[in-house]
Design a protein around this nucleic acid. Structure first.
Lengths: 131, 131
DNA sequence: TGCAATTCCTACCTATTAAGTAGTATAATA
DNA sequence: TATTATACTACTTAATAGGTAGGAATTGCA
């Protein structure tokens, strides 16, 4: 039950962009250097953040990335879900793959409670809380 | 960020033993049949529970397993830790592999908070709550 | 206009882990 | 001593994590 590098790095990238924001675009290379993450791997992670609409991007010379919104408008849960994918600790909570035994499953409500607990926490924090 | 089958099955086994407890030993085969888990795989999971001291066992004919304590004495967190291993969502929280950047890591306290939230939940429930 | 700096896109690779099988030794009991 | 069970150790297979690699498209600037 671990958060993968994608979610962890993504959070660090968002914090980095928040802290180093000076209005200009920041190149991936700069972020990668500061955060000690491989350029090529970071590309993939930042692509997820871009696709989620979290970043403004500029291609070409002097291009790069910057936050599309103010830090307090980013919910950490959203950042993690966009990069980690689904965060539920148990497959049967995802809606898909509904288990045939769910009706009389003695453990279901425990897992549901865990999922709720996790979501309450990660949805209660914003990027602003980290910077 | 998923709980593996080991933790999930282990919890189901413990619930099964609690519900079907009649004072006698219950064979692994019976549990496996009821829970629709392969005998051989269940052996490994039950071995973890046994090693953790959660079960009384009897070998040989009419042997099997039963709970060593009353259901309300089993903390779910303990059952999961014994079978899943470490439950912390981030490696740097485990104590080992301490990250060189930890001192000025902006994300550390967020992850620590998540870990605490999860532990508070799973340590607040006992097996009794599920049966 | 052409070069350098940059993002964007897709495919590929490798080590680890999850999940499960298999076989055999050991023990108890009827 | 045959049967029914747990205990132990090694092996197998498929999926996933965590990257690499190469090149196309875009933009600014000398």
């Amino acid at each position: 039950m671990k958060i993968s590098t994608k979610g962890r790095y993504a959070l660090r990238v968002m914090v980095d962009l928040a802290i180093n924001d000076n209005g200009n675009f920041i190149s991936l290379k700069d972020i990668a250097t500061r955060q000690e993450i491989s350029n090529k791997y970071l590309e993939q992670i930042i692509a997820l953040l871009t696709k989620a609409g979290f970043l403004e991007t500029a291609r070409g010379n002097n291009g790069g990335y910057k936050l599309a919104k103010a830090p307090n408008e980013y919910i950490i849960g959203d950042i993690l879900r966009a990069t980690e994918g689904d965060l539920t600790p148990i497959f049967c909570l995802t809606g898909e793959n509904i288990c045939s035994k769910q009706k009389n499953c003695k453990t279901y409500s425990f897992w549901k409670g865990l999922d709720d607990t996790i979501n309450n926490y990660i949805n209660s924090k914003t990027l602003q809380d980290l910077v």
